[in-house]
Simulated assay, not measured.
Amino acid sequence: MPARAVFIAGAGTEIGKTYVTAALTRRLRALGRPVRTLKPLASGVPPLGDPGFAESDTARLLDAQDLALGEAAVEACSPWRFSAPLSPDQAAALEGRSLDLADLVGWCRAQIAGTREGTLLIEGVGGLMSPVTETATGLDWLRALGVPAVLVSGSYLGAISHALTACETLRLHAVPLLAVAVSESEGAPAPASTVAGAIARHAGAPVFCLRRDEPCPDSLADLI
């Protein structure tokens, strides 16, 4: 099976992007398909020795791959990690650090080139238009990689508009959209399935609903 890279983008921040990415990783592995999952850029990440690290996005993705929380595995999954729970450009500035888009894209391209079989999942950070460097957004990162995307949305009030705006943005920039995954938001006024149905009428791509504590649908995994 030829290697394939897919970018997991978000319609917003804190909407379940890592939950969906981990669920998709587990489903692909359960189907016997080789998969490697990365979150190259992450903020709000405690040091590895901090007990809170186990709740970080990086730790959740390593757990989905059945990888131990060792320094090498963490570095291989998320080489750019920042402590503050802010956009990466702001979090980096607080640490006196900076990130160049060319370095981020170059690293990701090297991982894509080194994937000989199966699927490489690359989870983005924040929402599609969140800044990742002082001059670039998540969309710039995705466009530079030239890979298809899965868009993750929440089911909170306003999620339909946010998801469709992101879908339209991807379309205008000629980014292939494989699917939209609606992750159930806690306390949302409407069922996630209702939100997914509304998005599906306009998205121009397959839409799937992922409720909390439920596995990734096989039909979504089949598109990857």
Rank of each mutant, 00 (worst) to 15 (best):
A54F: 08
G106M: 07
A102K: 15
A68F: 05
L99F: 03
A163G: 07
S130E: 14
V150Y: 12
A3V: 07
T58I: 08
A192M: 02
E71S: 14
P206A: 06
G96C: 04
L157R: 03
T119A: 12
F7Q: 14
P217W: 04
L223D: 07
E168I: 07
P217D: 03
P131K: 09
G126W: 12
H202K: 05
W80S: 15
S185M: 05
A163M: 09
S153L: 11
D213W: 13
V175K: 13
D89I: 01
P148T: 05
G138A: 10
P215V: 02
G96Y: 07
Q90L: 11
A11H: 14
L31H: 09
F53R: 00
L31P: 05
R116D: 06
R97I: 00
D57P: 13
A192T: 01
G158A: 03
G197C: 00
T37E: 07
T58N: 08
D89G: 01
R4I: 02
S98I: 06
C167T: 05
E71V: 07
A5K: 04
G49D: 10
E134Y: 02
G127W: 11
S87E: 15
L170C: 10
F82Y: 10
E95T: 02
V74L: 08
G154F: 02
R97F: 01
P85D: 09
P215N: 04
A181H: 08
A163F: 06
L94V: 02
D103Q: 13
L62K: 08
E184D: 04
D213L: 15
S153Q: 13
L62S: 10
I224V: 05
V45R: 05
G126M: 15
